[in-house]
C-alpha cells in the first residue's frame, strides 16, 4: 500500500462515493427479499451512476455552463462540461420510468400472490410447477419427478 497516499484517497472521494453507493444498491437488489426494497436498491444503484457522471463533468475552477445572452463568450472563463448533466437528465427519466413500472408490477403481484416477499412467491411458484409436472410430466413417463 505504499503508493496509496492521503491525496489519493481524498482526491478520489467522488469515486469512493460512487463505489460505495453502487455496491450498496446492488447488494440490496440481490440480498433483500422484499420487492419494494429491491426497487429501492435499484434506485440507489442508479443514483450511483448519476454521481459518477456528474462528478466527471466537473472541471476544476469551472463555472456553470451558461452562455451570456449576447452570445459573446469570454475565452478566459472555464466552464464545467455540461454534457454529462444532460445525459443524466435522460438517465433520471429512464430511472423514473423503470421505478414506476416496477411499482405497478409489484401492485399486480401483490394482487395475484397476496405477498411481495421473494421467498413466499418462490414457494408458491414451486408448488405450481410441481403440480404441472405431476399433471403434464407423464407424457414422457417421468411423472412425479
Amino acid at each position: 500500500m505504499q503508493g496509496v497516499s492521503w491525496e489519493y484517497l481524498v482526491g478520489h472521494a467522488n469515486y469512493w462515493l460512487f463505489v460505495t453507493l453502487m455496491m450498496t444498491g446492488l447488494y440490496i437488489v440481490v440480498a433483500r427479499g422484499n420487492f419494494v426494497k429491491k426497487i429501492i436498491g435499484l434506485n440507489i444503484f442508479q443514483s450511483a451512476v448519476i454521481m459518477l457522471y456528474i462528478s466527471m463533468g466537473k472541471v476544476e475552477g469551472g463555472t456553470a455552463p451558461i452562455f451570456p445572452l449576447d452570445g459573446e463568450i469570454d475565452p478566459a472563463i472555464t466552464y464545467t462540461n455540461p454534457l454529462p448533466h444532460v445525459l443524466m437528465l435522460t438517465a433520471i427519466v429512464v430511472g423514473i420510468a423503470t421505478t414506476s413500472l416496477a411499482l405497478a408490477l409489484i401492485v399486480r403481484i401483490r394482487e395475484e400472490y397476496g405477498t411481495i416477499e421473494e421467498q413466499d412467491i418462490w414457494e408458491a411458484e414451486q408448488e405450481i410447477s410441481a403440480r404441472e409436472r405431476r399433471q403434464y410430466g407423464e407424457v414422457f413417463g417421468e411423472a412425479g419427478k
Binding site: 420487492f35 429491491k38 413500472l101 408490477l105 403481484i109 395475484e112
Partner: peptide
Amino acid sequence: LTTAFSYLL
C-alpha cells in the same frame, strides 16, 4: 408478473 419483475431487475 414475477417473471416480468425479475426481467426488469
